[in-house]
């Protein structure tokens, strides 16, 4: 089974000279610049909106401001895992490293966002429940998701060919999808300290007015940041693959040159 990353033939060796290839803009492009500017403008609106202008909640008082940051981060952690699962499935089906690169990039973001979900959740739990941590169904299943993501990333460092590394991690990547479903449903399936879902696209949404507006703005801004990070992370992984490929081609050419009289 062959893998395919780029359609072109391997380039020439001797890639250590920056001047030969131009300093280049790294992983930036017009799209990422536009996304970056939009995200920064969004943050400039979201921070005062969420921290100052939003009214206090009747039940949670000012802790509602945790909701604006914790829930979008958690949603994007889940989205990252679902993208990893989709990329893993596509890799196992098509065997193109493009899909593996996409899955790996999303898994890295998934680990960062899941860690942030756990930290912001703990910081919310202390004033709301009186404890930073409890072995509750939602918290425990989220911690297990974090471990699975770390396992996925660790597996990528295991020795082997690009294909075997991608195949092994794709199998773990597929396991992220049912785990996300378990985390999502945990508050309904088991008795939990964690509150039930506040935002439900198919049922009752428990907030409205200015608070819902703040949440939607927060989700939009955090999504822009996530997309910007995902594109840059994908391009970094792409460059790493290209360098491996070009280094290998250079080594083969050098070996052939040694063999010639």
């Amino acid at each position: 089974m062959t893998t395919q990353l780029a359609s072109g033939a391997p380039g020439s060796p001797g890639l250590a000279n920056p001047a030969e290839h131009g300093g280049g803009p790294g992983t930036g492009s017009r799209t990422t610049r536009a996304l970056g500017v939009a995200a920064l403008l969004g943050v400039a609106v979201f921070v005062p909106l969420g921290l100052v202008l939003s009214p206090e909640d009747v039940m949670q008082n000012d802790l509602v401001r945790m909701f604006y940051i914790h829930v979008p981060v958690a949603i994007l952690a889940f989205v990252s895992c679902l993208v990893t699962g989709a990329g893993s499935f596509m890799y196992l089906w098509r065997r193109q490293l493009w899909w593996d690169t996409a899955a790996c990039s999303a898994a890295q973001l998934g680990a960062v966002y899941t860690a942030l979900t756990l930290v912001t959740g703990s910081l919310w739990g202390r004033p709301a429940w009186g404890t930073y941590w409890d072995w509750d169904a939602r918290l425990t299943s989220t911690a297990m998701l974090m471990l699975l993501l770390l396992g996925y990333l660790a597996l990528r460092k295991a020795p082997g060919t690009a294909d075997s590394q991608a195949k092994r991690s794709a199998i773990v990547g597929l396991l992220l999808v049912p785990n996300v479903m378990i985390v999502r449903q945990s508050v309904d399936w088991w008795r939990s300290l964690h509150q039930p879902a506040t935002i439900n696209l198919l049922g009752n949404t428990r907030i409205g007015g200015t608070m819902l507006f703040c949440f939607v703005v927060g989700l939009a801004v955090m999504s822009l940041i996530w997309l910007w990070l995902l594109i840059h992370r994908f391009r970094v992984s792409w460059l790493e693959h290209q360098i491996d490929r070009l280094d290998l081609a250079g080594a083969l050419l050098a070996r052939r040159a040694e063999g010639q009289p």
């Binding site: 072109g8 890639l15 280049g24 790294g26 360098i243």
Partner: peptide, 14 residues
């Protein structure tokens, strides 16, 4: 990291 790696890859590959 992207800037560092981009120096080693031709623009045509990016």
């Amino acid at each position: 990291r992207g800037r560092q790696l981009a120096r080693r890859v031709p623009a045509s590959e990016r």
